[in-house]
Each structure stands twice: as structure tokens, then as C-alpha cells.
Design a protein around this nucleic acid. Structure first.
Lengths: 252, 252
DNA sequence: CGGGCCATTGAGTTTCTTCAACATTAGTGG
DNA sequence: CCACTAATGTTGAAGAAACTCAATGGCCCG
């Protein structure tokens, strides 16, 4: 995947320079503010999505009215592979100035058939999505609430660090220049400094993600702070002090 | 996916008749008995796997010695996309006469580059794996143990029914003819009749899959039986009597 | 027939959830 | 500039749920 990013960054000529750019030529960019819905229900059957900037959550409503966050999406993450025929499935922006590219599924399939490079890129994205989901399964499989939260923090840090530079600068800048400035005082999904994670989600969201009550999330964070594993300078900012203390109990 | 199966079943000529058969030409069939290891650790980085017959579980050992079942695999299911660099990851047969096809990753990638049909088939398999994992996430997100077990039963029934006929008959029969007979008195992963599921796994396995203690699994099954949702003629056989009673509480 | 694995059931304990109150912060309008 | 409001986060206490430990019985296999 790093190769793909590098190729993207270096592309300069007018011809579609790389597989991702060729795909993006088919895409419709969707710009959303915090809390706004990006797509609903069966849209996943006709479209694929990729987060370009910001962050998003994918939710599913149960019959009992409980909300489940199935996936957290950060820049570079794909979504929509499974067809998503499930009802009550929504995708919402977590921060302001979230940009999601929407690809028509049929055209993407046609592009993949015609262009092996694009097909390879799509496979890589699908495999990345699988890895993401498997990490999530390993997370949910933990027994302890503290372990769940600790592993969640490590996974979040890894994913925020894994997307260091904005890709497809030409496109996202073009969009950003005609909207408001992309800075947001508290909603940034980007990592600020080594060992420091800015949570783009509330305690309640984390709870829906980890199958925990929000109070339990709060208590688990407090417990991790007490034992010196993390620091909590602000509710949405977390310093990861003792990474091994988290990993020791949370390694899968 | 049904189109792929139909095409496979109808193929008769000598030329590699369809994408899956072209992929299978690169595969090494692995035949395992119940409990035997199919692959270990980083093998997923070099290979892809597809279950041909029987059933398998994919496990990950935590640091605390706890075992997590990350995925249950039935005929047609793929595995190995994510590279699986995680240590302590194993894949084991759940029933006798389990056959798994092992594909060299590099050759599969090369085939996908050269043959759009194969690439499309691989995408379809990857998307199916994503759907599988998302179902699993929705399962783990449930709060109640009874709900988890109920949803697990429905998902298991759906997946066992989704693979009605053995694919690639020529190949698996050729293998079966030089081994023992594929019948197994209690290990069949196939559905036996409408609304009846044969569990290929122990209560302990189910617990490792759903993040529950085996006793809780047993109690949940007993509770579902008491409320008339299921019948338990034998420990490994489950009649699904009131599907809506399971779905009402377990719909995602 | 004995041994081991699996499944079930019971009792006690830990953990998490729920309900509630309170603190903090951001946004709003006077 | 300040009060007000709403959303969010924290903390406490009671209850429910699941886990652990333990014992029992069934089944298959040697």
C-alpha cells in the first residue's frame, strides 16, 4: 500500500497517472459536516466509498433501537464491498470537512476488468478492509473492558499514524478551496505528536463500537490513567505513555 | 456468487472452464482430519486458502493464553487476504476429511493481472469474506449472551444452507477416492433438513467465537430451548423452531 | 472397563450495566 | 460580557449479567 501512496504523490503528467487516480476520475466527492449522513441503507449496493479527509462511522440500528458502530473510517479506508443490503445501515461524518469519494460500483467493476493495475489496487483496498475488520473482531473478542479500550487506543493510534499525508492533493485541495477551511478546533482525526491520539468520537461512540456502556468506557480510561498507561489532558486527547502496558494485556 | 457456482457446475470442456477452476489449477489441496492444523502463523502472507470440503476454524492466541476464534470457515470460504502477519495465528480442521485448497499468493496475483475473469472472481471472494466478517462483528456487538447465541445459530444456518452442493466435483472426488470415505458420523458441517443445524464445533469453540464462557453458551442454548425458539435433540444438533423468535431479538 | 472429552447444572464472585447526580465545556442570545 | 442551555464527561450506588469454580452425567475411544 505504501507503494501506491508513493506513486500517487509522484504523479505529475496529465494522463491518469496511477490506478487510484483512474478510479477517482469516476468518483463523486461528498463533503459533509460533523454528524451529517453520508449515505444510507442500500446505497452500498450501488456504490463504493473511500474516505478522503476527516473521519466517518458506519452504524447499524438493531431491532431493539440499539446502535452499533460497525466500522470507523479514516482517510484511505474503503467501504461498501459487501453490498450492504442490511437495513438501518448508515454512514455519518464524525468531523467537519469530511470528504468521501463515492464510486459507482458498475463503473469500478468495468475499470477493474479493463485495467489490471486498477484491479490490483482494488484488491489491495479490499484486503486492507479485511485487515481492519479482523482487528475489530480481535478487539471485540477481548473479555475485559479495560483491555478492549486499551486495544482500541492502540489500534486507533496505528490507523491515524498509518495515514500521515493527504493523498490526491490536487483533488482534495480543489474541493477545500471552495469550501470553508479544513481546520476544526476539536474534530481533527489526525494524530498530534508521538504517542498522542485525538479521539474523533465521543465516549458513547466508543461504547457502541466496543459493545460497552459509555460509563464503562469512561471508567476504563480512568483506570488506564491510574495505572500510568495513558494520560488524559483533555477528554478527547489521550497521551499513550506506556504502550507496553496496553499491549501486554491487549496483544492479539 | 451464485453465477460463479452455476458456471462451475456446467463446465465440461477441457480448457480451464471458469475463473475458479483456473485458480484451482494453481492450488495444492490439503486434506486434514478433525483437529489437525492446516496452516500456521505467517503462512497467510504467502498463501491464500479456500475451504473445499468440511469446516475449519481460524484461531489467534492472546498473550494471556486465551484462544480467540476469529473466523469459522465453510466450503467456499476464502481466507488469507490480510497477509495475516499476526503471530499465534492458526487454522485447524473442525471435521474429518476437511479439504482446503492452498493457493500461492504471487501466482494468484499474476493470474488476476492476466485474466480479468479471475480477478473478478477473487474480488467476489474477498467481498464475501468482508460480508462474513461484518456479520461476525454485528454478532459480537450484541449485548446479551442469548442474543449472541441466537444470532450465531441463524448465521450458521444461513452459511450452511448457502453452500448446498460441492463445487469442483472432479477435483475433490479425485482426492476423496484415494483417501478414506468422506462420511463422518458426527462431524458433518452440512445442514440436515430444513431448520436443523449440525454444529461442527463444541460449546467451548462457540464461546471462543462469541467471547463467552462455554457454560454461558450452554445456558443460553437451554434458555432458547425453554422459550421454544429451538430444539436440542442432541448436543450438536439444533432444530430452529421459531426463527422469528431468534430474529426478533437478533436482527441487525 | 477406565479415561478423557464434552455438556450440563449449581453456587459464589467479579464485572458490567443501569440509573442517577454532578461537573465541564461549547454554543447562544441577551 | 455574562447567563443560559445543551451536550458531553465523570462518578457513585444498586442491580443484573456473565464468569469462575466445582460437581455430575453422557459419550466415544482405547
Amino acid at each position: 500500500l505504501t507503494n501506491l501512496r508513493r506513486a500517487t504523490a509522484l504523479s505529475t503528467d496529465g494522463v491518469p497517472p496511477n490506478p487510484l487516480a483512474r478510479m477517482d476520475a469516476l468518483a463523486t466527492p461528498l463533503r459533509r459536516r460533523r454528524g451529517e449522513i453520508i449515505c444510507e441503507d442500500g446505497a452500498g449496493a450501488r456504490f463504493l466509498f473511500r474516505v478522503e479527509a476527516g473521519a466517518a462511522r458506519r452504524c447499524a440500528l438493531s431491532a431493539d433501537g440499539r446502535r452499533r458502530i460497525v466500522d470507523l473510517l479514516f482517510p484511505g479506508d474503503f467501504f461498501g464491498f459487501a453490498g450492504e443490503s442490511r437495513a438501518g445501515s448508515t454512514m455519518e461524518a464524525l468531523v467537519d470537512a469530511t470528504i468521501v469519494l463515492r464510486y459507482p460500483r458498475r463503473e469500478i467493476e468495468a475499470l477493474a476488468d479493463a485495467d489490471p493495475d486498477s484491479a490490483r489496487a482494488i484488491r489491495a483496498l479490499a484486503f486492507a478492509a479485511i485487515a481492519r475488520l479482523e482487528t475489530q473482531i480481535a478487539l471485540l473478542g477481548r473479555v475485559n473492558a479495560v483491555e478492549k479500550v486499551g486495544a482500541f487506543l492502540l489500534a486507533l493510534e496505528a490507523r491515524q499514524n498509518a495515514a500521515p499525508a493527504p493523498r490526491h492533493c490536487e483533488r482534495s485541495e480543489a474541493i477545500g478551496s471552495r469550501g470553508e477551511a479544513p481546520r476544526s478546533p476539536r474534530g481533527s482525526a489526525r494524530n498530534d505528536g508521538p504517542g498522542c491520539v485525538t479521539l474523533p468520537v465521543s465516549r458513547c461512540d466508543i461504547g457502541d463500537f466496543l459493545a460497552l456502556a459509555p460509563e464503562t468506557v469512561s471508567r476504563s480510561l480512568a483506570a488506564l490513567e491510574r495505572r500510568g498507561a495513558i494520560g488524559l489532558p483533555a477528554p478527547r486527547r489521550i497521551e499513550i505513555i506506556d504502550r507496553s502496558a496496553l499491549r501486554a494485556r491487549c496483544d492479539g
